[in-house]
């Protein structure tokens, strides 16, 4: 076993995902603790060019193959199994994503490597891999260890600010030829299906900006829509906004609407009636903007601002856009 920390690079439509940089950010901290290098594993059809953006790593190993181009985790799995077998790193980090979740368990069994899922923090202490995990829907924090290692970790999104994994370095970039036969992959890619135009499914969104009666008029909705656009979020709402037909019924959150659990629920001008809260209380992060300090939404929110939405929302949209720029 080496002391290296490996990170799987994830990319979609030619773009590296935020999750990749989050993993690199964690890897940057953990690799020195392990006493090894941070190695980025870049797999795909035509991916050599992406290596430049992986400055946080000490080494980038890339594998190019026609069959790695599509969203078929099994192909990745076969290549990774071979690679990890040969290189035997101390710790391999995978994102909790559509790809990562279809890899970790299989690699764990195939390579007989212990794995930890739902990781929020990772460290190597006295040679052991130690993870802090959020289990039971965030109701319990579990500190778990893989004594001595080696091991695998499935890391939750948001475990580390992505910025920590973006840096200018110039890693050594090496091509690796897979020693496996990808013709044996049993899962076949047939095509991508884009989401149907028309209405969004708010139960599947990572970020929801939710509006309540505090917006007062339909003409004011664009103010909130602009914030949603800046965040890449969908708009949802409390019932009165749907009653007024400012948004379709599919956007209603609550007892008689949808139950949602996004990573961020930003409640704007919503009082937080129990019927509403029933549909959103399990969101990962709840931020509320409401002009009334006694509004019950502040009892379920993690962060709140007692403020006029017409003042804060445009400023917030601007701040989000500036940051992206």
């Amino acid at each position: 076993m080496s002391q290296d920390v490996f990170v799987l690079v994830e990319h979609l439509k030619g773009q590296l995902t935020d999750g990749t940089f989050e993993l690199l950010g964690i890897g940057r901290e953990v690799a020195p603790q392990a006493g090894g290098r941070l190695v980025a594993l870049l797999l795909g059809r035509d991916v050599r060019g992406l290596a430049e953006q992986l400055g946080a790593a000490d080494v980038v190993l890339y594998v190019e193959d026609e069959r790695l181009g599509d969203s078929v985790p099994e192909a990745y799995r076969r290549v990774l199994a071979g690679l990890l077998q040969e290189q035997s790193p101390k710790l391999t980090l995978l994102p909790t994503s559509s790809l990562g979740m279809d890899l970790a368990g299989a690699l764990s069994v195939e390579l007989n490597l212990p794995m930890i899922a739902f990781c929020k923090q990772l460290a190597v202490q006295d040679g052991s891999i130690v993870a802090t995990c959020e289990l039971y829907g965030g109701r319990a924090v579990v500190e778990a260890e893989i004594p001595e290692g080696p091991g695998l970790a499935l890391v939750l999104p948001g475990a580390c600010p992505a910025d920590k994994g973006r840096s200018e370095g110039a890693p050594a970039v090496e091509e690796v030829k897979p020693s496996v036969d990808l013709a044996e992959v049993r899962v076949r890619f047939k095509g991508l299906i884009e989401p149907p135009p028309g209405d969004v499914d708010i139960t599947r969104q990572e970020i929801l900006v939710s509006v309540g009666r505090g917006v007062q008029r339909e003409e004011n909705l664009p103010i909130v829509q602009e914030l949603a656009d800046a965040l890449g979020a969908a708009l949802s709402s409390s019932r009165p906004v749907v009653d007024q037909q400012w948004l379709p019924p599919t956007r209603q959150v609550g007892k008689s609407g949808m139950t949602v659990k996004p990573r961020l629920y930003l409640a704007v001008g919503i009082s937080g009636a129990p019927e509403h809260v029933e549909g959103m209380r399990d969101s990962d992060l709840i931020v509320a903007i409401n002009s009334d300090a006694r509004a019950p939404i502040f009892n379920v929110a993690h962060y709140g601002a007692v403020a006029d939405l017409f003042e804060v929302v445009p400023k917030l949209a601007e701040a989000v856009k500036n940051r992206g720029a």
Binding site: D243, P249, K255, S256
Partner: peptide
């Protein structure tokens, strides 16, 4: 009480 949206529709 549990058919609010249905009835409103």
């Amino acid at each position: 009480m549990w058919l609010d949206s249905f009835a409103y529709e």
